[in-house]
């Protein structure tokens, strides 16, 4: 056990670090409720106002962008969960020729950075007529090696005998997958879901390229639009926009931090 003196040192360090780290976000939240006058004169907040939020929603279809982001992130999350669960099942439970080669192929995808292949991908999406569509924003991200490995790690803990027994009982692989493997691996699926949602909500480069108008534009690009459109002095409105962008992901992170930490470490180290 720590002595009181040592405890005090740790608390001081923790509080200082927390303030420094949360500083930029806290500052943004405070500024988003300040009048422009207070911000420009650099005074402490004198009045509390929602005007910045109202202005942000009036100036751009922010609500529509939020909806787009929600749809896009949910589609990607669902797609990733489905595809990686299926792939992980094959790698753990099914034995067939060429499996090791395919496993190697999955690893190889991690060596190809998305940023380096963005040009042909843009052309592919355009040729499919998927520019400014949810499909164009989501489908390229459905298959993930990270997700497959994370779930594979988890599926491996399910005894193989369980599958044999189910097969003897006349249950097919797909039934076994749906009614045994998925329910047992709930926690990992939730972890991967949280991670998938976080990363897709925060995506920037691809939505910038794959959306040319406001129909499927995500909130991240909306924020950039707000920033470029704003006269430099409207900081309150910009901060309000930024706060709106981070609230969903921060909530998700606060709720799922423990799960994420466990899941990511397992996926990372083993």
């Amino acid at each position: 056990m720590l002595s009181t003196g040592k405890k005090l040192i740790f608390y001081v360090l923790l509080i200082i670090s927390a303030l420094l780290l949360a500083g930029p976000a806290l500052m943004a939240i405070v500024m988003s409720f300040m009048t422009n006058q207070d911000i420009l004169t650099g005074s402490l907040p004198t009045t509390f106002t929602f005007d910045n939020y109202i202005a942000a929603f009036e100036r751009l279809p922010f609500l529509h962008f939020l909806f787009n982001s929600l749809i896009v992130s949910m589609l990607i999350t669902l797609g990733q969960l489905t595809l990686s669960a299926l792939a992980a099942y094959a790698f753990v439970f099914l034995e067939f020729k060429g499996r090791d080669f395919l496993f190697f192929l999955f690893i190889a995808t991690m060596m190809v950075p998305f940023e380096a292949s963005v040009i042909p991908n843009f052309h592919t999406i355009r040729n499919l007529g998927w520019i400014d569509s949810y499909a164009g924003l989501t489908v390229p991200f459905f298959a993930t090696t990270f997700g497959t490995f994370l779930l594979r790690q988890n599926f491996k803990q399910i005894p193989k005998e369980l599958r044999e027994a189910s097969l003897i009982a006349g249950m097919g692989d797909f039934r076994f997958f749906l009614s045994v493997v998925l329910p047992v691996s709930r926690t990992s699926l939730v972890t991967l879901g949280i991670y998938g949602f976080l990363t897709s909500w925060n995506m920037y480069l691809w939505p910038l390229l794959a959306s040319t108008n406001e129909t499927v534009r995500t909130i991240q690009i909306g924020l950039k639009q707000l920033q470029t459109q704003e006269q430099l002095n409207q900081w309150g409105v910009m901060m309000a926009g930024a706060v709106i962008v981070i609230i969903p992901t921060l909530l998700l992170l606060f709720l799922g931090q423990k799960k994420l930490q466990k899941g990511l470490t397992e996926g990372a180290v083993k």
């Binding site: 670090s17 927390a18 780290l21 949360a22 930029p24 976000a25 500052m27 943004a28 976080l198 909500w201 925060n202 920037y204 991240q220 690009i221 924020l223 950039k224 920033q227 910009m238 901060m239 926009g241 930024a242 706060v243 962008v245 981070i246 992901t249 921060l250 998700l252 992170l253 606060f254 931090q257 994420l260 930490q261």
Partner: peptide, 16 residues
Amino acid sequence: IFSSTMGVSVAAASVF
């Protein structure tokens, strides 16, 4: 708090 910047998107962080 320490892990929270993971939830902040690049667009929002850049605005801050």
